[in-house]
Design a binder for these strands. Structure first.
Lengths: 320, 320
DNA sequence: CCTCCCTGTGAACAATTTTTCTTTAATGTA
DNA sequence: TACATTAAAGAAAAATTGTTCACAGGGAGG
């Protein structure tokens, strides 16, 4: 039941082997045993290398044809929410795999749509993590990645800071991070943090981004924001009682997309929600049944240009 | 031992199912049994659909990291043969899979390097067939594909005409074909064919292409040119005796890349070899041990700008 | 109305892949 | 040196995938 796994203990650092094995297995169609002979290593090691290659996004799967129904949903979404583009992928059969599927599509989208010189303001979430993971490692000139969120003190693997860094590394971008925790202990501290010159500088850079990539979080209990302990369960209940349906950039919002009046929202160290409108292109990457409410809220009060989601969410959003 | 297979008998026309199944299997990582439950079809059918999806290039595998040694070979090739670009992939473990591997790389290259407005002059070969098969089906505006070779009367699956058509369809290009057999029965007939207005028109279009994509053939007996019967075994022997090391655009050439003086070369209905220099970018897609000699010959006497090959061939070409 | 193919399907079996658990080796620590 | 602790490799079992074969409709032609 561990929803958020730590980084796999065993990593194979040898990119050479991973690439070679992947070629033989996926492209040539050899059996793992055969590959073990060729590479002169144990059969099981081949298997482990291939697993690592998949997990790390060294091999990527691209599905050429899209599903008819998804294309129809894309059109409807564009029309309904005034999007410039929409991407809808089939829903994951296992609920918990939604981030995987949507992340995959997001990676493909970003690979095609990030251009030299772009400045990307980055949010946070499991879906985004998957997307970044699958992003091809190809440098794009003069790009910049700016994190819109502070970092977590614990919880390495799923961390705004970590994600931004990984993204930047993949595309050879400069990387700017908010050197503060995502939630300060108390509102006054937040204000102190945010007024720091270095923080203001990063926020300023984010404001000048031309692409914002973000996700929304729900209250389902496998949501990372709930799963990690940095928001107390009691606070989560209070937020829900106050009408919150989820969070965007770690700000909790109600069904109309407005920031809920609660102390937690005064402790968050992040790019200000209302300033998202300063960024020309906003890409919202989220999906799955349980995100429908938040997504609707986010779409209501945030100018989203591109929506990357799955069938379930698309249908949910369209069924008023 | 059937080297050149006919098109698989069983095709699944339902692109919807293929795409859905592929998503669940490759992206979400479900088991085939699970997918069968979801889609409400038998497990075995899922398996067959997935096979079809792979064969038809509906799912594609992309390997992100390249192999260090291959990168080094690419550099050496560029320098040695004055190429503007080189792509080297790991060699297939099973000799006969070389076209698969190289074709895969060629597809990736073409997908990234064909731009709107391009006119592509196309050669022929098993490797090219695989490349075309894996090409993503994405329209590229105002493109044109021109076949540089006549067609075969039999042998549907591996046919210059067929290949050109498939290529054109994939990228939404206009398609021009040479409406003559690749080898006329007698030289005078060839001249008659080639002087036809319609033929001249296509050749003219090819001459104005900006990209030529071609392959070379060797005398190994699984080579399509030998395998199909349109060159008699006795003629093949004569050609070899006359110093031919293989063919390029169905012209047989000697080790220096010059057209061998033999009747067969006077019967070929194809774009003239020496006119390749009129096309700014020439991409040579070939590899495998047995192609080294022809490739060297082709490189010696044809201005090749991009070479897509495998480790074996790369090493062979560099080891003088 | 009855064959004869032809196609699609599933069952049974074989091969491969994946997981789990054990063993081995390696490294650091008292 | 002995003792942990951890990482890597392997063997065996379990699960999944791939192949083969036989059978059930369902037209087309007799």
């Amino acid at each position: 039941m561990a929803v958020i796994e730590n980084e796999k203990a065993s990593r194979f650092p040898d990119a050479e082997l991973k690439a070679r094995a992947a070629w033989h297995y996926y492209v040539e169609g050899l059996t793992q045993e055969r590959i073990s002979e060729i590479l002169g290593i144990g059969r099981i090691k081949v298997h482990r290398i291939l697993s690592a290659a998949r997990e790390e996004g060294v091999v990527q799967f691209r599905i050429r044809d899209s599903v008819v129904e998804c294309v129809q949903l894309e059109e409807s979404l564009k029309q309904r929410f005034g999007l410039s583009q929409a991407v809808v992928v089939p829903s994951a059969a296992d609920r918990s795999n939604a981030p995987l599927m949507i992340g995959h599509a997001a990676a493909a989208y970003l690979a095609d749509n990030v251009n030299p010189g772009d400045v990307i303001a980055l949010g946070w979430g499991r879906t985004l993590k998957f997307a970044i993971n699958e992003l091809p490692r190809r440098p794009i000139a003069r790009t910049t990645v700016v994190s819109m969120l502070g970092g977590l003190t614990h919880a390495q693997p799923l961390n705004p800071t970590e994600s931004a860094w990984e993204f930047a590394e993949k595309i050879g971008a400069e990387c700017y991070l908010l050197p503060v925790p995502v939630y300060a202990d108390r509102p006054e501290q937040r204000d102190a943090f945010m007024s720091q010159r270095s923080v203001q500088d990063v926020v300023f850079r984010a404001r000048r981004a031309n692409i914002a990539v973000l996700s929304v979080g729900s209250f389902s209990n496998d949501s990372p924001i709930a799963h990690y302990g940095f928001i107390k369960p009691s606070e989560l209940e209070e937020l829900q009682a106050a009408g919150a349906v989820g969070d965007i950039l770690c700000h909790f919002i109600d069904a109309e997309g407005r920031t809920v009046d609660h102390e937690v929202n005064r402790r968050v160290c992040a790019y200000p929600l209302q300033d998202l409108s300063d960024i020309p292109t906003t890409i919202l990457v989220s999906g799955g049944q349980e995100k429908i409410a938040v997504m609707r809220a986010a779409l209501a009060n945030t100018k989203v240009s591109v929506l990357i989601t799955d069938e379930d969410a698309a249908k949910g959003l369209l069924n008023r």
